[in-house]
Simulated scan of single mutants.
Amino acid sequence: MSAPATRRGLREQGAERFAVPDAAGSEARRRGAMSRAGRLVVDVLLWAAAIAGTICMVLVVLALTAQITLIMFRTGSMSPTIPAGSVAVVQQVPASEIAVGDVVTVDRPGDLPVTHRVTSVAPGESGEQRVLTMRGDANAADDPYSYTVESVRVVLFSVPGIATVIVALGDPVVLGGLTIAATALVVWAFWPRRARGATGVDS
């Protein structure tokens, strides 16, 4: 005849009965939390890639339709307004629309373009031409010669400190690495996963 059950014995039996399931449940919750955290990181990276892609497409459309492009400042002749290492958004406009005080980029045959502030505007030989005198904000005097132009690129706004990033992104090795990483991320995010507990056998 077995000994009568006591409250202590029943509690110990209950603890033994639920010890393993509780541990298994805790492990499952931990793995679930890690899975959710990983999914959140992937979602953030995918959104960042989507936003970057959208910005690139918008810039291409603007370049084709509104003649809006980017220029990088390698020197500090426009400091402190536009320091070296800045990137400016510029738009091609007729020279007749330029006024004193505008910051414009002028193309120079056989030399690099120059981006300075307009200090004077005079009529040219034709109705479309203008003769511009310009000066960098960091310079004490006007440029040594004037510029006869029919169109210029006027600076709409600038962002300091991102020229290095854009130059790095233009490197073939960096660009290739980013492409591979983005492809792997998309494949990993959308690769079909077998539901937990599935046997893989048709009934």
Rank of each mutant, 00 (worst) to 15 (best):
S77P: 09
S77K: 04
M78L: 13
P80Y: 06
P80K: 05
T81P: 03
T81F: 05
I82K: 02
P83E: 03
P83F: 04
A84N: 08
A84T: 05
S86C: 09
V87N: 06
V87L: 10
V87A: 10
A88L: 01
Q91P: 06
Q92W: 12
Q92L: 15
V93Q: 11
A95D: 06
A95V: 09
A95C: 09
E97I: 04
E97C: 13
A99L: 07
A99K: 14
G101Y: 09
G101I: 08
V103R: 01
V104W: 01
D107I: 02
D107V: 03
D107N: 14
G110K: 10
D111W: 09
L112S: 15
L112D: 15
V114Y: 05
V114K: 04
H116P: 04
V118I: 04
T119H: 05
T119L: 07
S120Y: 05
S120W: 04
V121A: 09
V121G: 08
A122L: 12
G124Q: 10
G124F: 08
E125K: 11
S126C: 09
V131P: 01
T133G: 14
T133F: 01
M134Y: 03
M134N: 01
M134S: 03
R135I: 09
G136F: 10
N139E: 06
N139Q: 08
N139L: 12
A140T: 08
A140K: 07
A141T: 14
A141R: 11
P144V: 11
Y145A: 11
Y145C: 00
S146C: 01
E150M: 02
E150I: 06
S151V: 04
V152S: 01
R153C: 10
V155E: 00
V155M: 05
L156N: 08
F157C: 13
F157V: 10
S158R: 00
S158F: 03
S158G: 07
P160D: 11
P160C: 13
G161M: 06
A163F: 01
V165F: 13
A168I: 04
G170S: 15
D171S: 13
P172W: 14
P172G: 10
V173D: 11
V173K: 15
L175T: 14
L175Y: 14
G176P: 04
G176Y: 07
G176N: 12
G177V: 15
G177M: 14
T179K: 14
I180V: 15
I180S: 13
A182C: 13
